[in-house]
Design a protein around this nucleic acid. Structure first.
Lengths: 160, 160
DNA sequence: CGCACATTGTTGACGTGGACAACAAATTTC
DNA sequence: GAAATTTGTTGTCCACGTCAACAATGTGCG
């Protein structure tokens, strides 16, 4: 096939053996936004996870706690829809967080099917700590991406 | 805790029951780049996967085929490093693609440990088809993000 | 040369996440 | 009041990242 998007002039033919570290081309991946978004997302998550490892909070758990904190008493369906995850997946996320006593599933007053989600005191404390650590994580992103690029990315992606 | 980044003026306290569809706040997620990058990546992948479902090629498989095509004869270690995935994971990806006769692992002439990766004719055909389908996928991204935003994102993320 | 060390590909195991299907209880619709 | 829908839940399957271990091969150095 041979794409035409090869930037270096080296012919692929001539390099079967050992010629030291060669520069490897991305080929048509260079025109695939998803590839770069994926790479960025992976290293953002890696940094996030390592920084919050001390309090054992994953990105998904952080998003759950943050949205409950901002919308006290919302239901699991609402939360799942907001975060774009499956209800089934959320059930297990909540189960672990409830086991750790970070939140409670209260019976909804008006609808017997629903649970009204609330953070516990401990949940608020952990979230406060998570906020501090993830603020530092954002600082790191600013450092690596540059303030301007960071700002533009956040702005562009927020209103998609 | 209560974050100060609440845009609507509604107090969280007053909404325990059923008041119709309420607007749910993201709270501190609004200042987390990773959250939005993740959301974007998820829906990019969903669109990609559904469009390439007809030829049963995942994003990961596509990236493997594309890089081999652009760097005939490279080794598994080089490929894994380029794509940022584990050698162990790559082994299984290659195994399936080789089973489907899309590529071959030839013995490297100079180094008995290495495999020289090459696409088969069939592999090139499938990749050509994948390119067409994923080009349409990129068109869809342009449509949804807007041409300007798409262009800026691709440019910004490429040189991170 | 000979031996320690590094690299390459491979396998196994574990945990996480997304996707579906099925279900019971509760609620809404007509 | 019966049918349809919503909500939370469980189970299952598969993709993926991660880590440890290993055999085969290659490299470096005394």
């Amino acid at each position: 096939m041979r794409t035409s998007t090869r930037s270096s002039g080296a012919t692929a033919r001539a390099r079967g053996g050992r010629y030291g570290a060669r520069a490897i081309e991305l080929g048509m991946l260079n025109r695939r936004l998803g590839y770069f978004v994926r790479r960025l997302q992976v290293w953002i998550f890696q940094d996030f996870i390592s920084r919050l490892a001390a309090i054992d909070i994953s990105p998904a758990q952080f998003s759950v706690l943050a949205v409950i904190d901002a919308n006290e008493g919302l239901s699991q369906s609402e939360l799942a829809a907001t975060l774009g995850i499956e209800r089934a997946r959320l059930v297990r996320l909540l189960h672990r967080l409830e086991q750790r006593a970070l939140l409670r599933r209260l019976p909804s007053s008006a609808d017997g099917r629903r649970h009204a989600l609330r953070l516990t005191r401990e949940g608020e404390r952990v979230l406060a700590r998570a906020k501090v650590l993830s603020d530092r994580h954002e600082d790191e992103l600013v450092r690596r991406l540059g303030a301007e690029r960071y700002r533009m990315l956040l702005e562009m992606l927020r209103d998609v």
